[in-house]
Every structure is written in C-alpha cells, then in structure tokens.
Design a protein around this nucleic acid. Structure first.
Lengths: 203, 203
DNA sequence: AGGGGATTTATACGCCCGTATAGATCTGCT
DNA sequence: AGCAGATCTATACGGGCGTATAAATCCCCT
C-alpha cells in the first residue's frame, strides 16, 4: 500500500474520532506509519489530504441514510420523514466525533473554496436523492424533479441539519421525531383547521 | 473604560467579522488597545474571554429574531413560521461571519464544557420563547408550556438551524421560506389528504 | 500623605505547527 | 545492468501561538 492510501485511510479514521480541526500533520503521520513529507508530496498540504478524506466520509454517511429512508416502500411521506429523522438521530448519537468533524469542516469551508464547493455539491445531490424518494412514496407518477418533491426534500434536509446541530450542543434537549411530527401537526392544523376555516391568508 | 470592557467589546467585534477560530490573543489586544497579559488577568485565558463574548452576541441575535416573529400579532402559526424563516434567512445573509463564528463555537463546544452548557442554555430558552410565541398565536388559551407548543418550537428552531448550516455551504441552494411551506404542505397533504383518506397509520 | 490592593505594562518562554529541502531508496523499462 | 522518475526518509526552519512573570503604575481609603 502506498503512503498515499495509508494517509487517506488514517485521515478518515482520525476524522471519525478526533475531529477535523485538531488533527495535526504529525497525527496523520503517526496514524498512518508514513512520513511527514509524504503529506506534502501526495496531497500538497495537510488541508488537501483532509479535504480529500472528508468527501468520502460524508458521502458514505448520506448513502447510509438514504438506504434507511428507502427501507419501507409502503410508507407515506410523513412516515418516511419520521423514519428518516429517527434514523438520523440514532446515527448522530453514535457518531458524535464525526459530527464534530463535519461542523468543523463547515467552518473551514468558509475559507477553503474547494471544500465548500465539495460540501455544496454534497447537499445538492443529497436533496436530489431525497426528492426522488419523496416522489417514489407519493406513488402518483410525480417525478423527483417536481418542485413539490424538491421542496419536501429541502425541508427534510434542513430539519436533519437542525437536529444535528442541536444534538451536538444539547443531546438531551433535541426534539424526538415524535416531537417534530407533533409540531408539524399543530403548526398545520392551527393554520388550516380541519373544519375548513383557513385562518391564514396564504395560498 | 477598563481593559476588561475593552477586551469584551473587541471580542464581540472580532467575532462578528473574523470568526471564532481565527481570533488570536494578539488580535484581541490590537483591536482593544490593551495588553496581552490583560486577557489572562481578567478572563483567565483567551477562551474565557471569547466565551464570555459569544454568549452576549448570540443572545442579542435571538432577541432580534423573537421580536421579528412577534411583530404581527394577527398572523397564524404558519405565517409566523414563514415570517420567522424569512427574517432568519435575511439575517443570515448579512451576518455570514457571525454565523461562521457560531459554527466554530459549536465545534469548540465539544471540548469546552462551559461553552457547551452556555449554548445548550441558549437553545432551551430560545425554544421556550418560541413556544410562548406559538401559544400566543394559537390564541385559544393554550399556554407556552403546552407540549404542542414546545413541539412546534423545537420544530421551528430545528429548521432555522438547518437553514443556517445550508446557507453557509451553499447560499444559493438554500430553500426559501416558500419552498419550506410548499414542502410542508406537500408532506402533509400527501399523508393526510383533505378528502379524509388518511394514508398513514400514524396517530 | 502614604500604603496596599487592583490593574496595566513589557517582555520572555516554551511549545507545536505546517512546510521545505536534500538525499536515499525503490520500481519499471530498455 | 543501468538509468530515470517516482516515492520515501530524516531533519531543519521559521513562525505564531497562548501564557507566565515581574516590575511599573494607578486608585482609593484612612
């Protein structure tokens, strides 16, 4: 195995249990059994290596999530939302360090255009993928690129991100998927009561 | 004015336009016209100073948001959600650097229990405050500590956080408040169609 | 006026960081 | 075998960081 591969593997491991911002070049060398200069040689810089690694890690993460959400093909969109959020929260609990890395990467992205583009791309494909799942569960021929599906996807993804942030700060205070559903129901029925009195002027 | 105040003021300014992680002790000294050792003397450490500053900054931010959401007392919950999200997004656009600071603080919080407690507290009070607003707009005597209100609050806050994260990575890809509402509507009506055929087994 | 605690100043210390350099070694081709 | 380019090794460099120290100064109280 080349040093290149060793470094990449070490970076992935360290990202999962040490956190992006606190990984030093010497950590990477120690964890990979390679040499300090190999980082520069193969990746240009420490940041180059880390960013290469981070892309693969998070892609896998969202892959797993998508699989989970697809698991039950008979579920309604709301149920899928529920399942997705539940799976997401479980995943988060077991991957705190990785989540920290993600948040750190988010912060770094502001100063690292490449990383930022990478993450933006990740989001876009993630939304597209979720939109496709939504279309599938609507089961009325709607396609994934339908604006409504995209809207649902944006929405679900936003909630996932919000949950991630909150679970980092205050794991015990994070709303459960049931809370979210209850909130959604309340929000909705208060504005569009089942009796037909639409208290909102919105279309 | 004491060095203590000067440092705190400088920290707040720097947080708004330089970002938590990249503020050095020497930056703080330069921006405040004080002395390197004053940081240690008054705050124990650089982190102590920064954390003291960050608490005040974000409290003000959420204060402003709450005021906005309350502005129109006749709005339905959904409308308030819409208004809040819209205001939030506008605020985000003009405060990127501050948002970066927030995200960086989030990451730091994992290793700084004090900061983390602070942020957790911030979230809890924020949720309580939002819950109160929700109760108010339900206008049927429901109190802010009603579980349904808390649920809505958790939900709205989660979406705000999600939007913040996404606006950092991909400002142009962030869903608009209209997108969110559309998503919500689709999600809801697909699961609980107006014709009464509840396609979901959920209660 | 003067004494003492609170504050401010100037500076030094030690640490660790990321990267560069230069030479050693390996690998595959002719 | 021998060359060349790719890769690996060992180490040095310069710099920036946060914090500690000790002396100077301020300010209030008696």
């Amino acid at each position: 195995m080349s040093h290149r591969d060793d470094l990449l593997a070490a970076a992935r491991t360290l990202l999962e249990d040490k956190g992006y911002a606190h990984i030093t070049a010497r950590d990477l060398v120690a964890a990979s059994g390679t040499n300090l200069a190999s980082i520069g040689y193969h990746f240009g810089s420490k940041a180059g290596l880390l960013n290469a690694a981070i892309a693969t890690v998070f892609e896998e993460w969202t892959d797993q999530l998508a699989e989970l959400a697809m698991a039950d093909p008979t579920a309604s969109p709301i149920e899928r939302g529920h399942v997705t959020w539940a799976a997401w929260l479980t995943g988060l609990a077991g991957r705190r360090r990785l989540l920290v890395s993600y948040i750190e990467a988010l912060a770094q992205a502001e100063r690292a255009p490449d990383l930022r583009r990478q993450l933006a791309e990740l989001y876009r494909t993630c939304r597209v993928r979720v939109a496709r799942l939504v279309a599938e569960s609507l089961d009325d021929g709607t396609r994934g690129d339908d604006p409504r599906c995209r809207a649902v996807a944006s929405f679900v993804v936003a909630v996932c991100d919000g949950l991630a942030v909150q679970s980092l700060v205050d794991p015990d205070g994070v709303p459960t998927p049931d809370d979210l559903l209850a909130g959604l129901a309340t929000l909705w029925s208060a504005s569009f009561p089942p009796d037909g009195n639409d208290t909102s002027g919105r279309t």
